[in-house]
């Protein structure tokens, strides 16, 4: 029984991550690319905060690795960034849960900002630095989209009894 619950939970979480990946690779017009929120990261942040015993550093690392594969960037780049942000989220999940909507948005903005910074740095080391300021736009859009992500995933968690 408990095994069922855990298996089902893992499945649900996996499906949401798959969906997040879909969102990140969905074809959108070139001009809109900069406006994309960091879907995969946002989903990871939610699940780490909501279920830190279920989703942890390992999952985050693997997600980052996936992003590297899909984006064609140096392997380990986004994995590293995911790892560090996941650490922050895992460390602060209690405060995060207790904060209000706005505060959560600010935290998310901070997380995504750090994420972009790490990737920026690593890109500079390995490849080419993004030259446009639009590169930082996802911080804003992720922040704005967070409430939607939060509410949706929370609904799924409750509906499918994800534990």
């Amino acid at each position: 029984m408990v095994g069922d619950g855990i298996f089902r939970s893992r499945m649900v979480i996996l499906i949401t991550f798959v969906f997040a990946i879909f969102l990140s690779i969905f074809p959108i017009p070139t001009w809109a690319l900069w406006f994309q929120p960091a879907w995969v990261l946002l989903f990871a942040i939610y699940w780490i905060v909501a279920l830190p015993h279920r989703v942890g550093i390992a999952t985050a690392w693997f997600l980052g690795f996936m992003v590297d594969i899909l984006n064609g960037t140096t392997l380990g780049e986004h994995a590293l960034a995911f790892t560090l942000i996941a650490y922050l989220a895992a460390k602060s999940f209690r405060q995060f849960r207790m904060s209000s909507g706005w505060q959560q948005m600010m935290s998310v903005a901070l997380f995504v900002g750090l994420y972009q910074l790490i990737v920026f740095f690593l890109e500079g080391v390995t490849g080419s630095v993004p030259k446009t300021l639009l590169y930082w736009l996802p911080i804003l859009t992720s922040m704005l989209v967070w409430p939607l992500v939060f509410v949706t995933l929370r609904h799924i968690r409750r509906r499918y009894k994800v534990i």
């Binding site: 550093i57 690795f65 780049e77």
Partner: peptide, 23 residues
């Protein structure tokens, strides 16, 4: 999970760096 958090992070960070260097 929280206890070994630091350890895990260090491990995965190193793993990432190794991957990055090799790649």
């Amino acid at each position: 999970h929280n206890q070994y958090l630091g350890l895990r992070v260090t491990f995965f960070v190193l793993l990432s760096i190794i991957f990055m260097v090799v790649d």
